[in-house]
């Protein structure tokens, strides 16, 4: 599903590479934590998958896309097969919950009748069936993140990238979000989650890829956050 081969990424502003010769392979349906301190290269890793950045060296494969070399006009197709969730939710404050989710489908040209059908389905999946007409600022942080997850998942992507999705949430709410991500993972969707949250990583016992100064220093099939240091 995801394969990085000897990937390096240098930014002009820094002498040290953000990623140095990173090779990682993630299979379809896996649930993987990407951990490491700030500046370790997690964000660059995710950005390479979305083709927000192009690697300086090496190859990146996502699904059937040769991400680093594909034509620019095909990038939207790649992104349509990847769902994204962020720490700051990134909801449109002037649209309702349902409209926020529908927006993701409208802008890729999905027909109205499809949108009408799938939006309530996905809202039910994330547990927001009664809140379709609420505005984002009327919701709790956890609920807002559920909307964001619904929006990321509504087009049934092959994989879900989550960048610190629990960063702004209290531990209980974070736990709920993790349960939701697990549920999405059980539908066959690959989940890659970048996080700082020790307790979540420790409690989930999933594969852990740890980055430090742009290098993979650990790749455990059933890892915890702190072991090995």
């Amino acid at each position: 599903m995801i394969r990085l081969e000897q990937v390096s990424k240098n930014y002009k502003t820094s002498a040290r590479p953000a990623l140095a010769e990173v090779s990682v392979e993630i299979d379809k349906g896996e649930f993987v934590f990407l951990i490491g301190p700030s500046g370790s290269g997690k964000s660059t890793f995710l950005r390479l998958l979305l083709r927000e950045e192009v690697p300086t060296k090496g190859r990146v494969y996502v699904a059937n896309f040769d991400v680093a070399r594909m034509a620019r006009r095909r990038v939207p197709r790649l992104r349509q097969s990847i769902g994204c969730v962020f720490q700051d939710f990134r909801l449109l404050t002037n649209k309702t919950v349902a409209e926020n989710v529908a927006f993701a489908l409208e802008v890729i040209g999905k027909p109205k009748h499809t949108i009408k059908k799938v939006v309530p389905e996905v809202l039910e999946l994330v547990g927001l069936e009664g809140k379709a007409d609420r505005m984002p600022n009327e919701l709790s942080g956890g609920e807002q993140q559920r909307v964001a997850i619904a929006r990321a998942f509504v087009n049934r992507p092959l994989m879900l990238l989550a960048d610190e999705p629990t960063g702004n949430l209290d531990p209980d709410t974070s736990q709920d979000i993790m349960l939701l991500l697990e549920r999405i993972n059980r539908t066959g969707t690959t989940v890659l989650m970048a996080t700082h949250d020790h307790s979540i990583v420790d409690s989930m016992r999933r594969r852990v890829v740890e980055l430090s100064l742009g290098k993979v220093i650990r790749d455990d099939a059933r890892g915890v956050y702190g072991v090995g240091r």
Binding site: R73, P76, R79, C84, A104, V107, I108
Partner: peptide
């Protein structure tokens, strides 16, 4: 920019954005 950012992320083509 927020709308456009989301559009790009969910794979809207340049025509849409």
């Amino acid at each position: 920019r927020t709308e456009v950012g989301i559009m790009r992320l969910v794979g809207a083509t340049r025509w849409y954005t």
